[in-house]
């Protein structure tokens, strides 16, 4: 499961590299994001809108700018082609208590469209918009 998710994030990074508009929108985004799923940590290091590497935790030494923590079932629902209500957006995790967003949230908000569209790349291609 943990390895599968790392591979999936890396696959999303490859899709990201194929999206010129996301490269443009993420041009100022060079941050590490912690995504924690069922307690397993994944550190996604972005540089100028490209996903450079995905590192599995646990780690107490990897600095991150903001974090999204949720569970695997919620993430699976988020990645459905047509997600059900409350699982269609990362803020749905927060609103329904299925997850938390922590850290420097303003950096997330300033890059919100970029990051939301990156997260949606886990959906089947035709649904990721």
């Amino acid at each position: 499961m943990t390895h599968d998710l790392r591979v999936r994030f890396e696959d999303m990074g490859r899709k990201l590299a194929e999206k010129p508009h996301l490269k443009r929108l993420g041009a100022l985004f060079s941050e590490t994001v912690l995504i924690e799923i069922d307690g397993n940590e994944y550190y996604l290091a972005f540089h100028r809108g490209a996903l450079e590497r995905v590192t599995e935790g646990p780690s107490r030494q990897t600095p991150w700018r903001f974090a999204i923590r949720t569970d695997g079932e919620a993430l699976d629902k988020f990645w459905q082609p047509i997600p059900e209500p409350s699982f269609h957006d990362i803020f749905g995790f927060v609103k329904t208590g299925r997850g938390r967003i922590e850290g420097d949230i303003l950096v997330l908000v300033k890059n919100l469209r970029f990051f939301k569209e990156f997260m949606a790349l886990g959906r089947p291609e035709e649904a990721a918009a």
Binding site: P85, H88, I90, V109, R113, K116
Partner: peptide, 18 residues
């Protein structure tokens, strides 16, 4: 920061995928 771009990205949470 651009309030309009941030606002649009936030309200997209309130738009249904259908």
């Amino acid at each position: 920061a651009h309030g309009g771009e941030m606002g649009a990205a936030l309200v997209s949470a309130n738009i249904a995928p259908q």
